[in-house]
Design a protein around this nucleic acid. Structure first.
Lengths: 138, 138
DNA sequence: TACTTTATTGCAACAATGTTACAATAATTA
DNA sequence: TAATTATTGTAACATTGTTGCAATAAAGTA
């Protein structure tokens, strides 16, 4: 993502183009991994913890990134590519490697639709698959 | 679950039968919802926060309950019924109602297997479906 | 039953993360 | 360039997660 891409993405979403936002989006669009607030603090030490927290909130509000359900204690976030349909935008397969720990969002893969109890309706699906990634299987 | 059932479940898992454990298992086996540490504190005010925390840890270790991936900040837990295969034991469909907020573990339903990138292997699947439950759809 | 052993509990204390208020500052628009 | 309004940093506080340690209670044994 170029600086111009980021600027237009921000303006399209009624967000001012500020240094933190450039940096955070730069990190997300380059790294294919999911990141926590703490991860961002480590990578971007010039910005305050709270600023990063609020930056993530604003991106969540605009659906630029999405929160990944996890059992690790702290919240994880990943970039939402905008060439997806609304349905897909809210539905993701997340893969976590049980060896190296990396958590990634498999954006190119189809989510299979589960059967639900009668009377239930479905808006969004999240799938968390644990196993070994290509690197750790080699 | 009767008191005797709980006692034998605990002993089968090398855990001493103590009051907290009776109470916590009683809550889990009756309530079909997922519960957080805080939820238990509210329901069982006679026990210390840390005791409940450690009780949950010990049940997790023995796979009596399982942790549910979520994006709510605090960890959620649900009972693991022991009439399931090992594979199913680690894999669950969790349903969260976007209206009433209830999160439940749909233990009777099949998890569809997703396709993964080549080189990846799979050990465990968790599916989190958001939508409306029967009650809220009525 | 009483005794011994060892797991378990409660308390205190601390760590990490999440969250809000408010004044200072910087990005947009005219 | 000035005015407007979003955004930032600092501080402070809330909530949840986690550990150490002495007191206590459960299980096994005589």
């Amino acid at each position: 993502m170029t600086r111009e891409d980021i600027k237009s993405l921000l303006h399209k979403n009624d967000l001012r183009a500020t240094p933190v936002r450039y940096e955070v989006l730069d990190v997300f669009s380059k790294k294919e991994e999911a990141l926590s607030n703490k991860d961002l603090e480590d990578r971007l030490p010039d910005f305050d913890r709270v600023t990063l927290y609020r930056t993530l909130q604003s991106f969540i509000d605009k659906s630029i990134i999405h929160k990944i359900p996890g059992d690790s204690g702290s919240a994880l976030y990943a970039f939402s590519f905008d060439d997806e349909t609304v349905y897909k935008k809210d539905s993701h397969i997340h893969f976590q490697c049980i060896k190296c720990g990396k958590l990634e969002c498999l954006s190119g893969f189809e989510i299979p639709i589960p059967e639900l109890p009668s009377g239930y309706s479905m808006n969004e699906i999240n799938m968390i698959v644990k196993g070994k990634c290509e690197k750790c299987n080699a």
